[in-house]
Design a protein around this nucleic acid. Structure first.
Length: 418
RNA sequence: GUGGCCGUAGCUCAGUUGGCAGAGCGUCAGGUUGUGGCCCUGAAUGUCGCGGGUUCGAAUCCCGUCGGUCACCCCA
């Protein structure tokens, strides 16, 4: 990248051909799958009140404290670029009152977090997420997990691993954190510096610390679920039971922790080996949120699209380029040029992707352009063809040429559309 | 936010001790005045990321900065 003026901001990226093709493909594949499960799209604003995120994600979380793009607008309002999709969607759902009691929506869009870029991690990044609104039902959790895996499979990802756990009920969570803190406090000096800090804040994070010393201490602890109510454990058991009966492979990971405060009951994470140390490509869980005095319960997940694409690139490198459904017009001479221009427009009216060189280059150059654009057919028009009132049609894949009159030409070209 | 590595043509990258800015691919043109891909010939393309410093002289050394990348933190 040359000058600073040409560089995007740190962690931001321009997305265009050829990568954009993969983005478009996975989006349309995803929409088809989501439709099968009864989810419809919701597009909510990228900019929201700062408070919305503080209250829903939790004011202690790093996302809120360190990573949000937070600013004051000209009216003195505190605003933030959304760091995730659930809060905005739930605000929308809550605003719909009874109409949205059992809403099923999905979203695809940009999220913003001010962190240091890394593999599959950007400051502006994209998530595809779903929210299934409604009171806790193990079958719904399992259904949403099934959808989650279905999406990843539809994209062609086969090396994903599903890890699941429970965070218990809101009341369990407080109790579990207290018990965990009590157990860890005597070992405080043996923990890494990060974990000593976590002891005072988000204790649960100690459970998935990568430091071997911490992991050893954690291994001696009773599983987190043992601190939870019978109800919470039964709920998790039921979700697992349904997943098994649906033949969906998963790993129960008692130390799996999800950072955002709104989670309760089932939580899960999907990892992929291509991502390196940061191997989560998606995460989800059941949540309960109170917005504008309305309590909303639901279950949902979000897939980091940059991360999914890193995984896809590793599993299925882009297919070698082939011929595209494209007709290229080659003209020689002024009259043929004008004639081809009219043909070009009429092909486009008919929905046939078609192009020609408008700068009157040599035929050789026009053919090279056609080849480079991966056109499959070339229509040649010159003085000879004008005189005979025909068109020369060349198939670039095999070099075969034939002389055609207008009706048959159109018939052949219409096949390109499909 | 912290640390390691990196930044030279559109792309991938060479560049010796500080001494003329390079290659391959791609692009454009010609070889074939009406035919792409293969081959041959030729041409164009650079604020060496940016700014400062050291020096007779800096792509090269030093400082700062922007960006990339990897790891930590956190998360998708």
């Amino acid at each position: 990248m040359a000058s600073e003026e040409l560089q995007p901001l740190q962690g931001m990226a321009d997305l265009a051909m050829p990568e954009i093709a993969r983005w478009q493909r996975i989006e349309s594949q995803a929409r088809a799958v989501l439709n099968c499960y009864g989810f419809t799209e919701a597009r909510t604003p990228i900019l929201e009140r700062y408070d919305l995120f503080v209250r829903s994600l939790g004011d202690e979380t790093d996302v809120v404290q360190k990573e949000m793009y937070h600013f004051e607008d000209r009216g003195g309002r505190q605003l933030a670029l959304r760091p995730e999709g659930t809060a905005g969607v739930i605000r929308y759902i809550a605003s719909r009152g009874q109409d949205a009691q059992d809403a099923r929506v999905y979203y695809i869009g940009s999220m913003f977090r001010s962190e240091r870029p890394q593999a599959g991690r950007r400051r502006q990044f994209h998530q595809l997420g779903v929210e299934a609104i409604g009171a806790a039902q193990a079958a719904v959790d399992a259904e949403v997990i099934a959808l989650h895996l279905h999406l990843l499979r539809a994209w062609g990802l086969s090396q994903c691993r599903l890890n699941i756990n429970t965070r218990g009920l809101a009341s369990d969570r407080v109790a579990a954190q207290e018990q965990l803190r009590a157990l860890l406090l005597p070992r405080r000096e043996d923990l890494c510096a990060d974990c000593q800090r976590r002891l005072d804040g988000n204790v649960l994070r100690v459970l998935d610390c990568k430091n071997p010393k911490c992991a050893a201490i954690v291994a001696e602890l009773p599983p987190l679920t043992s601190f939870m109510s019978v109800e919470a454990r039964a709920y998790l058991d039921e979700v697992c039971h349904i997943l098994k009966s649906l033949d969906l492979p998963f790993v129960l990971r008692p130390n799996l922790v999800r950072g955002l405060d709104y989670y309760q009951h089932t939580v899960w994470e999907i990892t992929h080996p291509a991502l390196g140390a940061q191997d989560a490509i998606a995460g989800g869980g059941r949540y309960s949120l109170n917005i504008g005095g309305r309590a909303i319960e639901g279950v949902g997940f979000a897939i980091g699209l940059e991360r999914a694409i890193v995984a896809l690139d590793a599993e299925q490198p882009e297919a070698p380029p082939e011929r595209l459904p494209l007709v290229w017009l080659v003209a020689q001479g002024d009259q043929a040029f004008d004639d081809s221009l009219r043909l070009l427009q009429s092909l486009r009216w008919r929905g046939i992707p078609s192009q020609m060189c408008l700068d009157r280059r040599s035929m050789k150059a026009q053919f090279r352009a056609a080849d480079r654009a991966k056109a499959s057919l070339v229509v040649i028009r010159g003085d000879a063809e004008m005189e005979k009132g025909i068109f020369l049609l060349k198939d670039l894949s095999n070099g075969a040429q034939s002389e055609l009159e207008m009706p048959e030409l159109l018939e052949r070209l219409l096949q390109v559309k499909a």
